[in-house]
């Protein structure tokens, strides 16, 4: 931990629903994100992996201020993001930007690319007309598109091009952190590689910090410096990408790696294992992975394991009593 953290998330929590009805009956609540603490250092890429419903997109929306946490804090360079999001959203948007999963639906169908890209230039950094033109040219060059695309409408461009426009928009205000929420999962594989290469290129060119959210392990592995694996709203395992993928501590991470299809590999997973997530309205008292876990013991069902270093590496943490391939407690 040589560099100080740029983005710090401390025990963030987001509960949907809850409260009471007018008759005083409690309403059901879902904990989408619970007790998530992590740090992102300047210039690194933090990958966040998990399956649908694990809370990774909610976490992303919390970081950019599109949603507010119900507990915990998120700070960027020492400034509270939650306060900024309420009081000065433009200031926050200058520092943290977001790339959406669906490139086409994140562009307004009735606006040209030029109008879409100019908006952050006017509202966030207040460039004059000349400055806008120059910046637009830079942006289009950065995402490897010809300037002719500026006058097109979103339905006249392909998914890969639309995603590059989405990236250009995020870049427009020259942010420090970009949160990428499944930026390539809606794209064809050949286009996916183009976009990943552009992202890689931009990161080194502009010194960006990425939070890269994806369900695709191989994509996350190829882009991340560090990885956080989420399950049922909590972090199951976090650590240096190389370390987590080579030597997974949490049995869930191990299962994910086993399940990911890879060219030249036949599946190794039993066909009738339980894949059900626990009931979100009625979360289990112990480890959420308890019912699916091959290593589970009675203790796992009763109390929740804390996120701790399991393999000797201080930076590699897992929330498990019986880590995979590690020493028993």
């Amino acid at each position: 931990m040589s560099e100080p953290a740029l983005l710090t998330i401390d025990r963030a929590e987001r509960v949907f629903g809850g409260g009471r009805t007018i008759f005083g009956m409690p309403k059901p609540a879902v904990h989408a994100v619970q007790d998530v603490s992590l740090e992102v250092r300047k210039g690194e890429t933090l990958g966040v992996v998990g399956e649908s419903g694990c809370g990774k997109s909610t976490l992303a929306r919390l970081i950019v201020g599109l949603d507010r946490p119900t507990g915990g804090s998120i700070t960027l360079d020492g400034r509270d993001i939650v306060q900024d999001a309420d009081k000065n959203p433009r200031k926050l948007a200058r520092k943290v930007q977001y790339v959406f999963q669906d490139p086409v639906s994140s562009l307004n169908p009735r606006k040209t690319v030029r109008t879409i890209l100019t908006a952050p230039l006017i509202h966030l950094i207040g460039l004059n007309r000349q400055g806008q033109e120059r910046r637009l040219e830079e942006l289009m060059e950065a995402v490897n598109l010809t300037p002719e695309f500026l006058d097109r409408y979103p339905h006249e461009i392909s998914g890969g091009q639309a995603q590059r426009i989405g990236i250009a928009r995020a870049l427009a205000a020259d942010p420090e952190v970009i949160v990428l929420d499944e930026p390539v999962s809606a794209l064809d594989v050949s286009v996916q590689a183009q976009v990943l290469n552009i992202l890689d290129d931009l990161k080194t060119r502009f010194g960006l910090t990425y939070v890269f959210i994806s369900h695709d392990l191989s994509v996350v592995e190829s882009v991340s410096d560090r990885v956080a694996v989420m399950y049922f709203g909590r972090i199951a395992e976090i650590g240096p990408a190389r370390e987590v993928f080579r030597n997974p501590n949490h049995p869930y991470t191990h299962l994910l790696l086993q399940s990911a299809p890879a060219p030249g590999r036949r599946s190794l997973v039993p066909e009738d294992a339980n894949t059900e997530l626990p009931d979100p309205y009625n979360p289990p008292p112990g480890c959420a992975f308890f019912a699916r876990c091959p290593n589970a013991t009675g203790r796992c069902g009763e109390s929740r394991p804390a996120l701790e270093a399991k393999s000797g590496e201080a930076t590699h943490l897992a929330a498990c009593y019986h880590p995979h391939g590690g020493k028993e407690e």
Binding site: L66, Y98, D102, N108, P109, P120, H123, L124, R169
Partner: peptide
């Protein structure tokens, strides 16, 4: 609830601007 509205918000547009410049044309 569409993503382009979130995107406009992150582009620094105010609620009135989003409503009348982004949503109204649609």
């Amino acid at each position: 609830r569409r993503e382009f509205v979130d995107a406009a918000r992150l582009s620094g547009k105010s609620n009135a601007q989003i409503l009348f410049i982004e949503v109204l044309p649609n």
